[in-house]
Write a protein that binds this DNA or RNA. Structure first.
Lengths: 230, 230
DNA sequence: CAAAATAAACGTTATTATTACGTTTATAAA
DNA sequence: TTTATAAACGTAATAATAACGTTTATTTTG
């Protein structure tokens, strides 16, 4: 081996799992109670050290599946944290991933098993180490990506209504949006497929359900189309 | 120490150093001839292992200064590479940073000392390991950031002309832009300060020199202004 | 059973931004 | 003095955005 054995560091992956609660119209973060010392008992993002024979993306997938039961969902590396003082127990480089999931998809028994819990981003407990910073970064990142990528749809169920989509974007942007202009712009992308079905849970009239057309999106992207939502 | 000593990995930083050559109108990558085995003698991005007592950003700064003589320039983390098979000599996690510099600022003797050399992105040699991938990622990243952040100005000298700025953006976008519309849009941001000086190196008439107003930019940003260039 | 209430859906207009061009200007060289 | 040329300036048609008003479908209420 050509490299110096004495210069190694611990490397972990942490996953910022975000979900959107349609009822409360709030973006939620999955947090679990840390089991290992130091700081056992504090709230933490889900995370673990990478294994020796494991790509970092696979490590993130492993962590996500272990704590949520989910695989094959949106999961992406977004940043690395590597200050020497970030963990007093040792020099740990943490690779932050984020995952956007549909709240209803989560396997509740698996989540419970690890003492995990959802918190609204507006009402978070104190997080261990620099995990609070990670959440802040993830929220900024969501804000900056939401306009030009269809990430929002990862957070809603397969079938959703335009008012639900509007509420989600209002939660992301943290401000009210004009519903008429929102509807116009969203529909102008022609990426939403309207179904012959209504959701009557929040009005007498009922709101049409839509599906996001993933194939059409990829088709447009491959032609160099620039998406602009909201 | 709470963590398992056997689960450590090597962690390196690699710096993608980009510069713009006004003469040839091409974006260049700084590359140096790798000294350590395996693959000593192949072209590589500048990079080294992080030190035990060193924040990752500081490691990147150290590498950049060692190979270019530059400090206090634009330098940002952009991605992590951590597949198990990326380096056959061991499990190395590489944190990719990128730096955008003004070509003329570079300390030529320091660069030469390490056998470093500029290559046009259009005419790169085969790079070691996954460094070619890193360069591709950096180019895409530049493309995606150039429109909404004033990164371009990092690549030009303090004083530059509008035609030079246009050529730079044409190099980034890889296509011709309408000079009249470009000029109008750039000036509409009011972030360019015209000087009472002309550069006559490329025309009889001469082109006015401009400076980018960094303070005004930060002031506008703090008010939530959305920059749109080009 | 008509009227009221309400969320959802649809529509219009003024303003602003973008695109795609044409024209004038300053200067050095012929 | 004319010519050549890059730089600078200008304009009109089209498209996108912002800021509003109106109608519709349905349930609940009097």
């Amino acid at each position: 081996m050509a490299y110096d054995e004495n210069r190694k560091s611990w490397v972990a992956v942490d996953c910022l799992v975000l979900g959107y609660d349609i009822e409360s119209k709030s973006i939620n973060v999955l947090s679990f109670m840390r089991q290992v010392d130091p700081f056992a008992g504090q709230w933490s993002l889900i995370g673990e050290f990478i294994n020796e024979e494991e790509d970092i993306d696979d490590a993130a997938k492993r962590v996500l599946e272990k704590y949520t039961g989910l695989n094959d969902v949106f999961l992406e590396q977004i940043r690395v944290y590597g200050n020497t003082n970030r963990d007093p127990a040792g020099r740990v480089i943490s690779i932050l991933y984020w995952s956007l999931i549909k709240l209803d998809d989560i396997h509740k028994d698996i989540v419970n098993k690890h003492g995990a819990q959802w918190f609204s981003v507006g009402d978070l407990p104190k997080m261990v180490l620099d995990h609070g910073e990670m959440i802040d970064f993830g929220r900024d990142y969501l804000l900056s990506k939401a306009k030009n990528t269809p990430l929002g749809f990862e957070l809603l169920p397969q079938k959703f209504t335009l008012p639900q989509l509007l509420n989600l974007y209002e939660a992301i942007y943290g401000k009210a949006l004009d519903d008429r202009n929102f509807r116009k712009k969203m529909l102008s992308t022609e990426l939403l497929q309207r179904l012959d079905e209504k959701d009557k849970s929040s009005s007498k009239k009922g709101a049409f359900l839509y599906e996001f057309n993933q194939e059409k999106y990829h088709e447009l992207m491959s032609k160099g189309y620039h998406l602009e939502l909201v």
